[in-house]
Amino acid sequence: MPRTDTPRLLAGLYALGAVLLLGQALWHYLVGDYARILLPALLAPLLLTAALMRLGQQETARLSAYLVLICGYLLVATSLPGEGRLALLWLGLPPVLTLLLLPLGPATLLNLTLAPIWLLLADGGLSLPLSLAYLALVIAAGLAPWGVRHQQALLLATDPRDEECAALKAAPLLERLESEVERADLLGQRLAVVVLHLPQLEMADEPYGGPARLALLGSFCGTVAEHSRDHDLLGRLDDADFWLVLPDTSESGALLVRQRIEEAAAGAMLDGSGGLEVRGGTCSHSPGSPFMALKRRLDATTRRLADG
């Protein structure tokens, strides 16, 4: 999940850039270079506007990134001509800034599209060594965000936990449940599963939006954790269907756990929607019966609860 402090951090960086531009304009004024005062003086308010927009909705956040990018492009375009060897330093700023502000695909496409413009501004021609250096910089700078995205995708694919709540995903849950069935048969222990359905979750996005959905899931998982043991396993089979695996527990014990969870959830107060409705059912493993027999009964109970 994205860090919640990222918008504030970026807004602060944009505001810092505006302050630096104002300082640059003041410096040009103090040294008498009046011809170069106008651009930083005009871009500073744009960066402040971008900082405020970054704190808004997702649409304004995207627009703020393009606004900052335009400001950076204008600064580079006015600084590249006549810089001599320093032009190489300015030439590296547009591709890096683009990759920092835009997604990898659009950033790479924009960098390649604007390459002739930056190369012409840098040395007045499209020399092969400078073109190769620019292309190498675009590729090298793009490797960092690509590596981060690849690592995040790998972690997401291998993480057994659900993205929205403190529960296992469906596949890891079934694997753990099968292991618990084998363990119960081997040790001669009991095994029960509580099936839980959240009807409110199916409509949580409509009146309240994503935050209400996450709050509902958090409240539910917290309630289950309070009324279950540390080694019990909560997994999410479907959007609103959960299984709570209770090792070394009889069906009557599972029924007691289910009742406690339902009562505690009904007493939990959610903003704008009152208590938390939980529909529950229980299934127990018959010693010596195959895992698929238990799974079929669990699937049937899940469908029955979902149908109301």
Rank of each mutant, 00 (worst) to 15 (best):
M1F: 06
R8F: 00
L9N: 09
A11D: 06
G12M: 01
A15H: 02
L16N: 11
A18F: 00
V19Q: 12
Q24C: 12
A25H: 05
Y34A: 12
R36I: 00
R36G: 04
L38K: 09
A41R: 04
L42N: 01
A44K: 00
P45L: 00
T49C: 06
L52V: 00
G56F: 00
Q57E: 12
Q58M: 07
Q58F: 07
Q58T: 12
T60D: 01
A61P: 01
R62A: 05
L69R: 03
Y73F: 11
S79A: 15
S79E: 14
G82V: 02
G82L: 06
A87C: 08
A87T: 07
L88P: 02
W90D: 07
W90I: 04
T98D: 01
P103F: 02
L110V: 05
L112M: 10
L112V: 12
L114A: 10
L119M: 02
A122P: 04
D123H: 12
G124R: 04
G125I: 02
S127G: 14
S127D: 12
L132G: 10
Y134H: 09
A136P: 01
L137G: 13
L137E: 13
V138P: 02
I139P: 05
A140V: 12
W146C: 05
G147A: 04
H150T: 15
H150V: 13
Q152F: 02
L155W: 10
A157K: 11
P160E: 09
E163S: 14
E164W: 08
C165H: 02
P172E: 04
L173I: 06
E182C: 11
G188V: 03
Q189L: 10
V195Y: 02
H197G: 03
H197K: 10
P199A: 09
E202H: 11
G209N: 06
G210T: 11
R213E: 13
R213D: 10
L214T: 05
G222V: 07
A225P: 03
L234Q: 09
L234R: 07
R236V: 06
D241F: 00
W243G: 12
L244Q: 07
E251W: 02
G253S: 04
L270Q: 14
G275Q: 11
G275N: 11
L276W: 11
C283V: 15
S289Q: 15
P290A: 14
K295I: 11
R296M: 12
T301W: 07
